[in-house]
Design a protein around this nucleic acid. Structure first.
Lengths: 354, 354
DNA sequence: GTGAAAGCGCTAACAT
DNA sequence: ATGTTAGCGCTTTCAC
C-alpha cells in the first residue's frame, strides 16, 4: 500500500518494528481483511476474490510474513512429515533406501525426515524418541524380530511400517526382502562347480533377520538337492570384513579353504577374498565367493565380486506407499510385502563372463 | 485412586471409550487435579508432591495418555529438533557427519533429523522445504558458494550453520574443512619422488567449494616451491570413478601417465588406479596416487590408497555446537570454523611403510 | 466472497 | 504445592 510512504500514513495496526514476529493477525489487520481470509490465501483454499488475494499477498510480501509452521501443524493436526528411523550403524545401502523413500514421499506430498535410533539396551531413550517426533507416520528399520522398539511403536499409535523384518504377526505392516530367490540362484550357480558338501554360508549376526532368512534359504536350497547340511557348513559372525577374514583363516587352518562360499554381505565376502589372497588361495579358481548387497565395493574389488542385489530404492518407495495406505486405512489388516533379490554374476564366482 | 474398582465409582469425567484421543484435561479430571499439575508431572518440572505425582502417573498409564507432541511444541515454541539438510546425492562419508552431529545433538538435548534437499534449479521447492520443517535450527550442507539456498535460509530467520562452504561473509555461521594442510602434506610427500612438473591434480566439479580449495592449495604448495603450474596440470571433472578413468586414459594417450597424482576424492583416485592397472602402469612405482576422504574403498582397494582424511564426525559435532551457540546468541558475529585435514600414507603413494 | 468465533492441547505466568 | 487463566497462531465451521 504505502508506495509513497511520506503521503500514505502507516496503518495504525501495523506492527512496524516490534520484536515479535509477524502473525496472521498482523497481516489481516494491515490488509484490512479477517484472519480467515488470510488463511485462505495462504493455503489457496476456497475461492478468494482475485483482488482481495492480490492485496493480501502484497501485504504478506511487504511485511515478510512467514506462517508459523508449528501453529499450522498443531491446528491442522498433520505435519505431512514421514519419519524414517534407523539404527545408528548404517552404511551405504541405506542411502539407496533413503533415496527411494524420499522420492516417493515427495511424490505423495510428504516430507521424509530421517533420524537414528539410539542403541540403549533399556529402550527408554528410544521410547522417548517416538513421542518427540513431529511426524504423521513412521518408517522404522528393525533388524531383529524381538526388538522391543516394536512395542513402543505400537503403543504410540503412530501409523508405522517396519522395514527389513516381518512384523505383520505383531500387527505392523512390513516390507522385507525375499532372500529366498537370490540365495537359491547363488547356490544353484555355485553348485555348477562344487559339491554341496564344500559350499559354505558365512552369516552376519545370528539375531539378524536377513541373516536368518538367508541361512535358511541356503539350507533349504541344499536340502532340496538331497544334501544334508553338515556342522560347520553354516557359520554366523557379524557383518564385518574382519569376520570374513577370520572365517577364511580358520578354514585355511583346517585345510578346508576351497570350494565355494556365500557370504551374508559384501564386506564379509571381501574379507574372505582378502584372506584368500594372502593365503595364496585363488579366487575364483580354488574358492568361489558370492556376497550380498551389490555395494560399491563389490564393483571395485578385484576380482569383481558376484553378489545378490537388493532393491533398496524400491523397498523405500514401497514402504512409503504402504505407509500412506495405512494412514488412509488405519484399520486394515497388517500386511507384509516382499521384494525380490537377484544374483549378479561377476568374476569372484566364475572366470567365465556371461 | 480406584484400587478397588468395584467400590469406587468411575469418575464421571472419565472419557472412557470415546473416539477422540486422551488429552491432558482427561487425565487431570480423572486424577482429580488441574491440568497444570499434570503438565508438571509430565515434564517433571517444579515440585509436585510425591503422592500427587504417583496418582497422576497411575492415571496416565491407565488411560494410555500420550502428550500431543504438536501441541507441546506449539505451546512451548521449541521443538528441540535440529534439522540437517543435505543434497540428495550423498554417500558414505555423510554417515560420519551424521553420526558426529547426532551424538553431539543428543548430548545437548536435541534431536537430529536429516532431510534431503531437492535439486530443482528454480529453487522453489527448496524454499518451501525450510518453512515446513518443524525445527528450532538448521544445519545445511552447501557445496557451492553461489547456491541460492543460502538466501532462503537467511530469509527464513532460522538459526543456521552451513557446512562445507564458507558463508560467513553472507552472514551465516560456517564449518568447513581446512584443505590446505592435508593438500600440502600430500604434495610434500609426493615431491619426494617426482618433479613438480609431473605432479597432477584431478578435481571434482569446478563449482564445488572443496575442489576449489584443494586445487588452490595444490597450486599454492607447488608455487611455494618455485614451480609455475603448467596447463593441464590441474583438471576438473566430477566426483566419479569414471572421470578418474577418463583422465588416466587421456593422460596415457599423451604418453604422460606417470609421476604422481592427487585426486579430489577417493573415487576419482580409484578410477585412476583401475585405468592404470588396465594400462599396465604400476602403482605406486610408475604412478603415485593419493585421494581424499579416507573412505571405505580406500582401505579395500589394492594397493591400499593413500588419502587425505577428513574429520567428518568432528565436523558434525562442531557444527551442532556452533548451532547451539547461535541459538543462544542470535546476534553474535557470523563465524567460520575450520577443521584440519590430514594425510594418511598407505600403499598407493609409496611401497615403503612408515 | 468474507467475517466472527470457537477451538486445537498444551505451557507458563500469576494467584493462592 | 496446586489451581486459574490467558494465550500460542493457526484452521475451520457457520453465518451473513
Amino acid at each position: 500500500m504505502p508506495a509513497t510512504p511520506t503521503i500514505t500514513p502507516v496503518p495504525i495496526d501495523e506492527p512496524s518494528s516490534t520484536g515479535s514476529p509477524i502473525s496472521i493477525r498482523d497481516v489481516a489487520a494491515t490488509a484490512g481483511v479477517s484472519i480467515a481470509t488470510v488463511s485462505r490465501v495462504i493455503n489457496d483454499s476456497h475461492a478468494v476474490a482475485a483482488s482481495t488475494a492480490a492485496r493480501v499477498r502484497e501485504v504478506i510480501a511487504r511485511l515478510g510474513y512467514v506462517p508459523n509452521p508449528m501453529a499450522k501443524v498443531f491446528s491442522s493436526r498433520e505435519s505431512h512429515i514421514i519419519g524414517l528411523a534407523l539404527p545408528r550403524f548404517h552404511g551405504e545401502f541405506m542411502t539407496w533406501l533413503l533415496h527411494g523413500a524420499d522420492e516417493e514421499a515427495t511424490r505423495l506430498g510428504y516430507h521424509l525426515m530421517m533420524t537414528t535410533i539410539a542403541k540403549g539396551e533399556d529402550g527408554s531413550a528410544r521410547r522417548h524418541i517416538i513421542g518427540s517426533l513431529l511426524i504423521d507416520a513412521l518408517l522404522v528399520v528393525i533388524t531383529e524380530q524381538d526388538d522391543p522398539l516394536a512395542e513402543d511403536v505400537l503403543a504410540s499409535g503412530v501409523p508405522t511400517v517396519v522395514l527389513d523384518t516381518d512384523m505383520s504377526a505383531q500387527g505392523l505392516d512390513s516390507v522385507i526382502l525375499d532372500n529366498e530367490r537370490g540365495t537359491r540362484e547363488a547356490v544353484d550357480h555355485l553348485l555348477r562347480w562344487v559339491e554341496p558338501g564344500s559350499l559354505y554360508f558365512v552369516g552376519g549376526p545370528p539375531q539378524n533377520f536377513d541373516t536368518q532368512q538367508r541361512s535358511k534359504a541356503f539350507a533349504a536350497a541344499l536340502e532340496s538337492r538331497g544334501h544334508q547340511i553338515q556342522p560347520g557348513q553354516i557359520e554366523m559372525g557379524d557383518y564385518s570384513l574382519e569376520w570374513g577374514k577370520e572365517w577364511a583363516i580358520r578354514m585355511s587352518r583346517r585345510g578346508k579353504l576351497s570350494g565355494a562360499v556365500l557370504a551374508a554381505n559384501d564386506k564379509i565376502a571381501c574379507g574372505i577374498m582378502h584372506a584368500a589372497e594372502d593365503l595364496k588361495v585363488s579366487v575364483p579358481d580354488q574358492l568361489r565367493v558370492i556376497g550380498f548387497n551389490d555395494s560399491q565395493i563389490s564393483r571395485l574389488v578385484r576380482p569383481r565380486l558376484s553378489t545378490v542385489s537388493l532393491p533398496m530404492a524400491e523397498m523405500g518407495a514401497l514402504a512409503v506407499r504402504t505407509l500412506v495406505r495405512r494412514i488412509e486405512h488405519p484399520n486394515a489388516e497388517p500386511h507384509c510385502a516382499k521384494l525380490q533379490t537377484k544374483l549378479l554374476i561377476r568374476e569372484s564366482s566364475t572366470a567365465i563372463h556371461f
